[in-house]
Design a protein around this nucleic acid. Structure first.
Lengths: 148, 148
DNA sequence: CTACAGTCTACAGCCACTATAGAGGCAAGA
DNA sequence: TCTTGCCTCTATAGTGGCTGTAGACTGTAG
């Protein structure tokens, strides 16, 4: 016997991903077109839960959509060499480390900034002074931190 | 004698901010409307360089536009108490620290992931296994890292 | 005068969604 | 059977912080 298929709402609850997000994933090709009921409602099987949980975990780890698409493609060829998947993950790790370093520099600078506030007036405010005077800045914050 | 005003291109070079970005800052109310030449070109004084460098530094430190707008408003009242500026900076520091913690968790998980890759086939790939099996995940990566 | 660089406005695109509108579908209770 | 109320559908616009493009005009050097 076959298992009863889920509507998108049930899938949403089962996978912990919002309905709109599932439809969005479909629209960008991460999810593939599901079967439809006579009235046009999407119908999913258990594999959809699995797929969504894969996507969600990868997103939680910060993988960009393109990388996830590549990983999903790789999954469909289980005998292919693992090196590609490894490379994608290593790239992601490198990106995360880079952002980590930038954020650490930001934290140091901000910490220094608020530490110097003595509660006086704006005119003498060291927070303002620091923002005005880039030369005063200790941290090498020249590259803007990218979106995650 | 007054100093010769700059066109937007000169301002761009002087402040290290792209022409389009300057116009964008104007459109969202961070820059204020400049004087114009007879033919309609924007004309700026030295204060614009100062203002842009303030904005840029704040952006480099990750302050969102709204916060920067607030800080600029504060600047126009130099005798106002410094507490508001301090609060904005502290909020930003807190945000940065939160993201830092999330990123550290990501880094740990990714490191663990790539360390287990033995170069075999996708079928046995530990990178894939980790992504498939959220239960295997050591890190508490339940909250998605926000854009910076 | 002729190039060519600079400037103008207005609008589309980026990422990864989220929110909204307006219409139709489905199951349970009266 | 009808109603109530949630579910689902499509299509579109908005988020943040810009960047890129198109097509027209302006300013300047040779």
């Amino acid at each position: 016997m076959t298992v009863k298929p889920m509507t998108i709402g049930r899938l949403s609850k089962a996978a912990g991903v919002k309905v709109t997000t599932i439809r969005y994933y479909e629209s960008v090709g991460l999810m593939g077109e599901p079967a439809r009921s006579d009235s046009g409602q999407r119908l999913y099987g258990e594999d959809a839960v699995q797929r969504l949980s894969f996507i969600r975990h990868a997103r939680d780890l910060g993988f960009p959509m393109d990388a996830i698409r590549d990983l999903i493609d790789l999954q469909t060829r289980p005998d292919h060499n693992c090196a590609s998947a490894d490379a994608i993950a290593r790239q992601q790790l490198e990106d995360v480390r880079k952002r980590l370093n930038q954020l650490k520099a930001l934290e140091a600078e901000l910490k220094r900034m608020v530490a110097r506030c003595d509660g006086g007036s704006i005119g003498q405010c060291q927070v303002m002074a620091t923002l005005n005077d880039h030369g005063e800045c200790m941290a090498d914050v020249h590259e803007r931190v990218k979106a995650f």
